[in-house]
Design a protein around this nucleic acid. Structure first.
Ligand code: DCP
Ligand code: MN
Length: 970
DNA sequence: AAACGGCAAAC
DNA sequence: GTTTGCC
DNA sequence: GTTT
């Protein structure tokens, strides 16, 4: 999407070095530190009231500088208020905008409605983001008891304690720490099957070495004081003298590398020692009242509030006051304008504020307004990739011309602040976005009083209206107090509108959209609360039709449907107390819903049932590999077939998925603990369909899959290409390419002049890399990395992931996730990965680099991660070269990173697929909601980060049972 | 009939 | 921009 | 190749 980040790493390859390579510690990352210096300098200049040098240094530095400055300001809410508008940077917004030409902003026609929906059907999402934005250091003992509460409290939709207990069956409630699942990891004797997971879990959490956490607290407090200081500490890191001795890790002691605590504690959030964002206290106290609909006339008084709106009943998820007609339809602004039609908006001069709006939606709004001949006064575009922290310069507000200010902000102060005005002409109506939605929908101006901001005045007492609350007794009670008609109009109507849309879109589950901030998580720091009540788009002309459709879709009789409606019951579960969109039964049972997850749970149940996990958790036990396996012939033959298809697959064809599915099927069969004795039986196995079942049938009957014999495959090609592909950096294409060129052996390949550096390394260490790594060696290697990392910061935490964490008996490589409590800043993390890389390279532990992370100005200070991939080797004559992957991640992404890096790949793909089906997006940083995709499934916005701090959080959000790492062997 | 992971370096 | 390969 |  955007141009590749500027890497400052010179294109020199250390692979040009003579063999055996001793990996000259590459080039210091000069520009990174140059950058740090310049940032520090400009900060100091700013402190002295000078114009920062950076102002002359070009946009990127400027942005950086401003950001730093902003961060400092954030520590002082008051200062922040004053300054949040002064630091706008033309260059950022324009340059970003430039990368997204208008036509890209405009999605294809068929997406539109969707987008609009996204905009219209938003669900208040209380100030969850805030809670993510900074996190108190979790003290080990506290964490144990609060972990579950934490993840619960964050699981949307909000649920009551009652619901939660439903959702947290005792056996999944606990024990997500691997050192419990894998006792020896901690140096404990393996004795797993006996101890229940529950007793294990508390053990695990509390056994986190307290020293680390405590040290972290102190550190954190110091570090967070001043960005300058943190910059300085980075520089200090550069100057850190290189230690010379290389310690051979003790083979006796188990590495203490297991200290990563994959838990969090929201309750401790407020005492965040790091002093992160320093949000105004009103946003830090929790829980912020959620979903208040603006009592219409409260406080926009000065901004043209029409009479007659206050006192209207306001219900549920809508802030739109009801018309007396009980129709619930929006009220046209004045009678004289009430004839809808094109050109009806010609008298409107609309200023739409981009804050808190999805760029796609924003740009759609603009198009619609212009189509309807309205005048657009706000910013012309909002680009997809604009850094939400950069204050984009808004066009000045024309106090005379403007008729409406449309905003997603929740209070008038914020509006003024963002517009950089003292006051707003009372003639200008300040309205929420639903005003615009309805105005567009009905092609005529709506009555502004029905669309007031949700929190007109900061600090104004909020009416304790129940809305958007989880199905709880409380909700229930108050809900029932509402006149039924009102509730119908507001809630049920909303629900079936939304659901109908979902039906039309082919998915019931994907329609839940929420507020539309985009971009990376909590970057925003406005004082705004996000729980603006949402409004629903109402299409009177089609309501009846949709209702009928919904009734049919739900499979109930019209009478029953009517009854549900009358009695305010959830359409889905038919219970009272919540509505469909808040139905705790949502989503449907996973096993019915997602076949891929079926394979996961098959593996899980298998693992549990057999209770053999302890075998593979111990390094000294052969593990699953040697276990008696059922269906061996079937598996082996399917494997051959898969390999064949894998090799002959052509891009663009189905072969890819064929192979994937073969793999799934094979894995599913592998998880069985019984012999397949018939085709029908095989058909029941997840991911085994007609064709594979038939082959299995053949195998059972004849001992051989017929296809294998009639395959006109090129056996030599398969064999050779398989070898080629086992070279790191070589895939199917390259292998075929080489075979076609007549190359047949590794030595042939070694002669090639145009190998890339990964292929060179792959060849150089080919023999070693083919060998599996014992768990014991993984631990030794991890210890080396951990020690070095802790040299830099003693509170850094490391965790071995990959197949090791899944308890596999041996590993293809070493995968390590590194994080530092509370640290999200990419620059700091980069300093960590650089430190590890440099130190271990100079110790000759790292001998080659396969992929080194790059730092780029554009991404400065972003909460990003860094992946290092290289070749390492323990000291000693006989040690082999090993592939090592080190992932340094922001603290807040730790859970997502662990989930991703623990795998296995199938599990990841399944979970991502599931997320996707629900309109979410899962990656190694977290779970994002509100993702809009084009018709090819390509995402067109980032979505909002909603989970990722802990693994459990992600499982919770996806509403699937937590899977222990060893249960992720899909 | 339309899904099937996400990312980024390399091309 | 698309392809290739990786986790 | 399998599933919804
Ligand atoms: N196609 C893939 C491959 C890997 N991964 C993730 C999950 C893996 O667990 C993790 C590490 O990748 P590895 O290649 O190291 O795989 P494993 O550690 O699972 O197995 P091995 O024993 O081969 O290292 O990366 C993924 O998401 N998708
Ligand atoms: Mn691995």
């Amino acid at each position: 999407m955007s141009r590749p980040p500027k890497k400052f790493r010179p294109p020199v390859s250390i692979f040009d070095l003579p063999c055996p390579p001793t990996a000259a510690p590459p080039h210091d990352n000069k520009s990174f530190f140059t950058h740090l210096d310049s940032v520090q300098q400009s900060l100091e200049e700013e402190d002295e009231g000078k114009i920062p040098k950076a102002l002359e240094a070009g946009p990127e530095i400027l942005v950086e500088s401003l950001y730093k400055r902003r961060r400092r300001i954030q520590q002082d809410p008051e200062l922040e208020m004053q300054l949040s508008f002064t630091g706008s940077v033309e260059s950022t917004s324009s340059s970003h905008t430039g990368r997204h030409p208008p036509e890209q902003q405009k999605p294809p026609k068929n997406v539109r409605f969707n987008l609009e929906l996204n905009e219209v059907y938003e669900i208040p999402r209380s100030s969850k983001r805030r809670r993510h934005s900074s996190r108190a250091l979790t003290l080990p003992d506290a964490s144990t008891s609060t972990t579950t509460a934490t993840s619960r409290s964050r699981s949307p939709p909000p649920r009551t304690g009652e619901d939660e207990s439903e959702n947290y069956p005792p056996d999944t409630e606990e024990a997500d720490e691997d050192w419990d699942a894998i006792p020896h990891y901690r140096g404990l004797p393996a004795e797993p099957a006996s101890s229940s997971s529950s007793s294990n879990s508390s053990n695990g959490s509390t056994s986190t070495p307290p020293a680390l956490a405590v040290g972290g607290t102190n550190n954190r407090a110091r570090k967070s004081k001043e960005p300058i200081q943190s910059v300085a500490s980075k520089i200090g890191c550069r100057r850190k003298p290189t230690t010379t001795s290389f310690k051979i890790p003790s083979l006796q002691r188990s590495p203490s590398i297991v200290a990563l605590d994959d838990t969090s504690d929201d309750e401790l959030f407020l005492r965040d020692a790091r002093g992160t964002p320093a949000l105004p206290t009103s946003y830090r106290t929790d829980p912020p009242p959620r979903a208040r609909s603006a009592p219409a006339a409260t406080s926009l008084g000065s901004n043209r509030l029409s009479a007659g709106t206050s006192g209207r009943p306001l219900f549920a998820t809508s802030s739109r006051p009801l018309a007396e007609t009980s129709s619930g339809y929006p009220i046209p602004s004045t009678s004289k304008q009430s004839t809808p039609g094109p050109g009806r908006l010609a008298e409107l001069y609309i200023y739409v504020m981009p804050q808190n709006m999805d760029s796609v939606v924003f740009n759609l709004m603009r198009d619609r307004v212009q189509e309807l001949k309205g005048h657009w006064l706000g910013p012309k575009t909002k680009s997809l990739a604009t850094d939400p922290r950069a204050n984009t310069e808004l066009p000045a507000l024309d106090q005379e011309k403007t008729t409406h200010i449309v905003t997603s902000l929740t209070n008038i102060q914020a509006v003024k602040r963002h517009l950089n005005v003292e006051d707003i002409n009372p003639k200008i109506a300040v309205v929420n976005r639903e005003w615009l939605s309805d105005t567009i929908t009905y092609k005529r101006p709506m009555e502004p009083a029905s669309y007031t901001l949700s929190r007109p005045e900061i600090g104004a007492p909020l009416k304790p209206l129940q809305q958007d609350t989880p199905p709880s007794s409380q909700t229930h009670r108050s809900a029932e107090k509402q006149p039924a008609s009102a509730m119908m109009n507001n809630v049920h109507q909303l629900d079936f509108e939304v659901i109908m849309q979902g039906i039309q879109e082919g998915s019931l589950e994907d329609v839940e959209m929420s507020n539309t901030d985009e971009g990376e998580d909590e970057a925003k720091d406005d004082g705004e609360n996000k729980d603006e009540p949402h409004q629903e788009d109402i299409h009177p002309e089609s309501t009846a039709q949709r209702e009928a459709d919904l009734q049919r879709a739900l499979g109930v009789s019209p009478e029953a449907f009517d009854k549900l409606k009358r009695e305010n019951r959830c359409f889905k579960c038919q219970q009272v107390g919540h509505w469909m969109r808040r139905c705790p039964k949502r989503p449907l049972e996973i096993n019915q819903e997602d076949i891929l997850l079926q394979t996961i749970y098959a593996a899980r149940n298998e693992a549990k049932r057999r209770k053999t996990m302890h075998k593979c958790q111990s390094p000294h036990v052969a593990g699953m590999k040697d276990e008696p396996r059922y269906n061996k012939a079937i598996i082996d033959q399917l494997r051959v077939l898969m390999k064949h298809y894998d090799n002959i697959k052509h891009k663009g064809s189905n072969e890819n998925f064929k192979v994937i599915n073969y793999r799934r099927a094979i894995n599913a069969i592998q998880a069985l603990d019984y012999e397949l004795t018939s085709e029908e039986m095989a058909l029941k196995v997840p991911c085994v369909g007609k064709k594979i079942a038939k082959k299995i049938g053949e195998c059972i009957a004849l001992g051989r899959i017929k296809k294998l014999d009639h395959l006109n495959w090129d056996k030599d090609r398969l064999q050779v290409e398989t070898i080629f592909r086992s070279i790191y950096g070589v895939g199917a294409e390259k292998a075929t390419d080489w075979y076609d060129k007549g190359l047949r052996t590794l030595d042939d390949i070694r002669q090639l002049p145009d190998l890339n550096k990964n292929q060179i390394a792959g060849l150089r260490y080919y023999d070693d890399l083919q060998k599996r790594v014992t768990r014991a060696e993984v631990e030794q290697i991890a210890k080396v990395v951990e020690d070095i990392a802790k040299d830099l910061h003693p509170d850094i935490q490391c965790q071995v992931t990959g197949s090791y964490r899944r308890g596999q008996p041996d590993c293809g490589d070493i995968d390590i996730v590194v994080a530092r409590p509370e640290v999200d800043d990419g620059d700091e993390l980069f300093a960590i990965v650089e430190h590890i890389r440099r130190e271990l390279t100079s110790k000759r532990f790292l001998v080659d680099h396969l992929a080194e992370p790059g730092w780029s100005v554009e991404m400065a200070n972003q909460p990003r991660h860094f992946k290092y991939m290289g070749i390492c080797r323990l000291p000693g004559e006989n040690s082999l070269h090993r592939h090592i992957d080190i992932l340094v991640v922001p603290w807040k992404h730790l859970g997502a990173a662990l989930l991703y890096f623990t795998g296995n790949d199938i599990c990841n793909r399944s979970m991502r697929h599931l997320a996707r089906k629900r309109g979410l997006r899962l990656n190694d940083k977290g779970l994002y909601e509100n993702v809009i995709r084009d018709k090819h499934g390509k995402k067109i916005n980032e979505g909002q980060w909603v989970a990722g701090r802990t693994e459990r959080e992600i499982f919770d959000y996806l509403k699937i049972d937590y899977l222990e790492p060893f249960e992720r062997q899909c």
